[in-house]
Every structure is written in structure tokens, then in C-alpha cells.
């Protein structure tokens, strides 16, 4: 039971959504954009967030798009993880989506919701980081198309009132060889101990991580180390481990030591799989 009241709005267009956000903001309602709503409902129940109004954007046509358009695969922020998984237009993203929460919740969680949520894992962002995706972001002022790296740093860096509309993934990446591995403490349905998404493009391995540190990331420095052909595979992995962007945490999912052990094990097998073309995908 959510122990407070809020208003519910379901705009039909982006302009409509941006306008109503601004109006509600000005009237002090502290509105939130609402898509799948799974995180908002569970946090509101615990009073971890409060809001005076939710703006349900998931039925706006642009947010429901999922198609190839020119050089891009366009996926609306309101598309559910299940829809992405079932359509399987970008297998790496499809797999990452299929391991967030559980299947029934994937019917509700949207791509936008996973990217913009407060839970630290945001596993759907990993394939986007690897593919230099673009994000289309709208506000009452304008709509902009920006590279993901400019907006996603540890988490989505959106201004108040900005709405994530779409993700544009350059088409040439969607068929790259890839590996997706999610490791948990034990259970399949669980937050990641460590999720790794990796793909091979121009003979270079790219890798992005969730659960390893307290935010999802892709590290060019780590990739450089992993791709250093002057070193043995073992040395490359060791070098990559030295370039982590933050300390590996101890938490309920596992200790830093164990995470690092698993990371080493996974990186070795992932790089090996991608380079030998013998991809198993577990």
C-alpha cells in the first residue's frame, strides 16, 4: 500500500508530457515521469520516494517505437524489456534485458525505466555503452539527440523535466559477436554479483560491467589493456583489473575478493571466447 496520494496523468504526446511536467513542477507537485512504474511503486510503498503526481508516458507513440530506421535501431524508452527480448533485434540487449529482475516484471519494466532508475545496476545500459548509442531526450524547451556517454555517467544525468524518449543504436553493432554473462550470489533471480556484456568489433573487445562497482560502466582503459596483443591473456586480464574505475565493494551479494575472483575468471573466458570465435553465452 502506497501511504500517500498522488495524481495520475497519462499524456498522449511528448509535448503534452513536457508541458504537464512543467505545470505540475511549478505548482509544487514534485512530479515524476512514470513508465513501467515498478521501482516507483515499490519505493513509494516504503516511503523511500514521495511525489505529488506521476506522469505515465509509456503510451506515447514515440516511446513505443521499436524498428530499424536508416542506420539505427530505434527503441522507445517505453518499450518493455520483454518486448525487446521477444523481438530480439539486438541479441546482446535482448539477453541483458532478459536477466533484469524476473520475467513477469520484465513485462512491465521499460528500457527507459531501467536506465533512469535508482537501483544501481541498470543492466540494460551495458549494451548501449558498448555500441556508442544515442539518446533522444525531450523537454519543454527542445528535443536533443546526444551520445550516451554525454548523459550517462554512473547514472543518467538528466535535468528536471527531461524525458528520455528513445535509444538509437548504430545498426552496425547489433550483429557483432558478443557475450553476456550475469553472475549472482547464487539464485538466478537476483541482483548481479557481476554482469558483463562484451562484444567484438574491428577485432577489439569492448566490455561493460554492472555490479562490479557501485555503478554500471564501460572503461576504455580496461579495454586497452584487454586488447594489448603484446601481452598474454593472463597479463591482459591482470592489467585490466588494475584499471577499475572505483573500489570493488563488499555487500550482501558478495565480498570484494570473491567478486574480483569471479571477474578474473569471467574476463579470461570472455576474451578467449570472443577472440577464438567460440562464443557460448551463459
Amino acid at each position: 500500500m502506497i501511504p500517500f496520494d498522488f495524481e495520475y496523468y497519462r499524456p498522449q504526446s511528448i509535448t503534452n508530457a513536457a508541458d504537464i511536467f512543467q505545470t505540475l513542477e511549478e505548482s509544487g507537485k514534485n512530479p515524476v515521469f512514470y513508465a513501467g512504474g515498478t521501482e516507483i511503486i515499490s519505493m513509494a510503498r516504503m516511503s523511500s520516494i514521495t511525489t505529488g503526481a506521476v506522469i505515465d508516458v509509456k503510451e506515447i507513440p514515440e516511446l513505443k517505437a521499436m524498428e530499424f530506421n536508416g542506420d539505427d535501431l530505434v527503441i522507445g524508452a517505453g518499450v518493455t524489456l520483454t518486448q525487446i527480448h521477444e523481438a530480439n533485434l539486438f541479441p546482446l540487449l535482448a539477453q541483458a534485458c532478459a536477466r533484469v529482475a524476473d520475467h513477469t516484471i520484465q513485462n512491465k519494466i521499460t528500457l527507459g525505466g531501467n536506465l533512469c532508475g535508482t537501483i544501481i545496476y541498470r543492466e540494460a545500459v551495458l549494451p548501449l555503452l558498448l555500441t556508442n548509442a544515442y539518446l533522444v531526450i525531450a523537454s519543454v524547451k527542445n528535443a536533443r539527440r546526444v551520445p550516451i556517454n554525454e548523459v550517462f555517467s554512473k547514472r543518467m544525468q538528466l535535468n528536471r523535466g527531461e524525458l528520455l524518449v528513445q535509444v538509437h543504436i548504430p545498426r552496425n553493432y547489433v550483429s557483432c559477436p558478443y557475450v553476456h554473462v550475469k553472475r549472482t550470489k547464487e539464485d538466478k533471480i537476483h541482483y548481479p554479483l557481476l554482469t558483463v556484456c562484451a562484444l567484438l568489433t574491428d577485432n577489439q573487445v569492448r566490455a561493460a560491467f554492472s555490479g562490479l562497482v557501485n555503478f554500471p560502466f564501460r572503461s576504455v582503459e580496461m579495454e586497452e589493456a584487454l586488447n594489448d596483443i603484446n601481452l598474454t591473456l593472463e597479463q591482459r586480464v591482470e592489467q585490466a583489473l588494475n584499471k577499475l574505475p572505483a573500489a570493488v565493494p563488499d555487500n550482501l551479494e558478495g565480498s570484494a575478493g570473491y567478486r574480483t575472483f569471479i571477474l578474473k575468471h569471467l574476463l579470461t573466458s570472455i576474451v578467449n571466447e570472443l577472440e577464438t570465435g567460440n562464443v557460448t553465452n551463459s
Partner: peptide, 27 residues
């Protein structure tokens, strides 16, 4: 659980299973 974890409240919405504790009636 009212937190989307147990599935005891599952219903179908447009034919797809949904945890009704994680959906607003208005939705």
C-alpha cells in the same frame, strides 16, 4: 510481498502476466 518478488498477485494484462502489486489501478 507487495514488492513484485513473489508472484502471488499475478494477473494477465492484455494477455501478459503482470504482478498486480506493481501496477496502478489507473494504469
Amino acid at each position: 510481498c507487495e514488492n513484485g518478488d513473489c508472484g502471488a498477485c499475478t494477473v494477465l494484462v492484455d494477455g501478459w502476466p503482470v504482478k498486480s502489486c506493481l501496477m496502478l489501478a489507473a494504469e
